[in-house]
Write a protein that binds this DNA or RNA. Structure first.
Lengths: 184, 184, 184, 184
DNA sequence: AATGAATGAGTGTTCATTCAT
DNA sequence: CATGAATGAACACTCATTCAT
């Protein structure tokens, strides 16, 4: 999907259909054999993201099930998993994190919905950690803190071109968030 | 500045000069007696923000000086101060947080610079807390976590129309971030 | 309305907004300060026509009222009146008669409605002439014959740049249609 | 020719090559194995029409030759013949009568030429009727009246889905036109 | 300062036509 | 002959900016 890199480079509003097709080595007319409109390409790019974020969560959340491993390890596995997808889909995430809200109202709303949905998932971890004796905090707010941290930090991580080693990032994030959540 | 509420409502790209002047009760032509371009209004709105965030920080950072009060109280004062300005300038912050990166490349870069500069300031707190025995973490990353949390959580707070009491928000944020930073 | 002459010359589908504005000595952008779309100019041009045809009819039909003048004179007055408006609005009528049905389905339908409505009015004359002893024919069909004749002949008259004297045209039309309708 | 029904339904300008080929059960590319352009299909559809109208006239005009039958019967035969071809080629005639002039200038001119040529043929009838003692009118105008009537009335007849019995239509038309032409 | 009509460069989208398979 | 993906010129419409009043 060459539109992706062009959007990432120029921003949705400053990307011309011709920029996309030029990069893709095709013609303007042909673009419309595959997409109904400029917005639709954007939809395609972004659509997978919400699902990916949630499905990845569900996949990684099994580490918390049945208490097979210590919660700290489970959290690390989670962040490690997310580090992988942020790295693999870095342009998409940059667009989502930095641009999506500014394209138009529709996408601003969608951006916020994605974040809110993700936060709802994250809340499950917080509730799980409560079983392990986490501090008595507003779990919704705590989930919001986790989400904000993950999105903000990974955003920086991508922008910095992965300046930090993945393991160091994962360790530090885990350390910070678990301590913030659990210590009494 | 009536442009502010229009930008917040419609988004920069879908705001017409006429929308702004209509709201302001003036004429399109007159708009250009005050602003050089559509972008300049945006500049004016946002320009104050970067300074506000940093100057507010400097103003609130004095609580950390000379160790006059316990660090926890200093952090609380800081967040309380930020809660005030996020509330007072909620539209501006929403635009900054949700839209700015998507307008065009120039503002995407600016958005990231503002965040990075703010993070640099925040790092001072982290270093200060190290004096009080904070855990040995990468202070830059820790600062990034604080910034992400603050921006992400306040963004949600505004969007939720201040669903949470200011004091509860401040207490929880402080609790979380200080614990995450300091506990061993 | 400069659009009129351009439509007449090039046809709706081959008229570019630029053709219209060039002829009008204005700019493309300004066109849209006055018209919502290309179609709207066409609407404006045509909209008056249906009303004109019917209102003119009503105005001229009073000659048939109260039998003040012989029906032949009344018919002549009618055609004389129509000759005037076809001459005064020749471009508009040419567009209506020759082009309107081919622009798109919407205008094809509209064209037929205008003709049908006009025919309904014309039927009143036929019924009036029946009082004077017209032949027992299907009055709807007779009205259709009158309408077809009027539209077809005036269409030719305009195209021929009024090759025939108005009085001769009026006399002959009257003669023909009245004879066709009344003689036994 | 499936293009015919599509043109009739959507109008030439709103018919896409794909609409035609879909209806024909073939492919866009294959269309161009049979036609040089979109216009050419239209040409094919219409081209036959001018010839048909004139050749049919010549075929039917023999009834006027040698005065073998009364002129009234000859005219009836003529209209009966035309009723048949208008019915048989109703879509084509609708396109010719309602749409052709609006497609572009070329076809507007062609439409008028076809009508003018037909009128020239019709004039022969008028001249023939003069031998039988028709009123002294401008024969060109009378021919124009006949043509207008025939085209206008048959147009309505097709549109009304042949609401009138063919014989009634033929009788009335004949009655009307002959009376209009001949009675003194 | 204030007005809003005028400007015209810019862009998404369409669709007849071509052509490789 | 048949296919349908690819092409790109063309055009309606938008809107930031200007400017005469």
């Amino acid at each position: 999907m060459s539109a992706l890199s062009v959007f990432e480079e120029k921003g949705f509003n400053n990307t011309r259909i011709k920029d996309i097709t030029k990069k893709a080595g095709t013609s303007v007319g042909n673009f419309y054999n595959y997409f109904k409109s400029k917005e639709e390409v954007f939809e395609v790019i972004i659509s997978g993201l919400a699902e990916l974020m949630v499905s990845k969560f569900k996949e990684l959340f099994i580490y918390f099930q049945e208490n097979r491993i210590p919660p700290i390890s489970a959290v690390k596995n989670l962040f490690r998993g997310y580090a992988k997808i942020f790295r693999a889909k870095k342009e998409t995430f940059l667009i989502f994190l930095e641009q999506m809200g500014g394209i138009n109202n529709k996408y601003r709303t969608k951006r916020n919905e994605i974040i809110d949905n993700f936060t709802k998932e994250v809340e499950k971890i917080i509730l799980k950690l409560l079983d392990f004796g986490a501090r008595d905090q507003n779990p919704k707010l705590t989930a919001r803190v986790w989400t904000s941290t993950v999105l903000g930090v990974f955003n920086w991580w991508i922008r910095s071109e992965f300046a930090l080693e993945e393991e160091e990032l994962v360790d530090n994030l885990t350390d910070f968030l678990v301590s913030g959540t659990m210590t009494n």
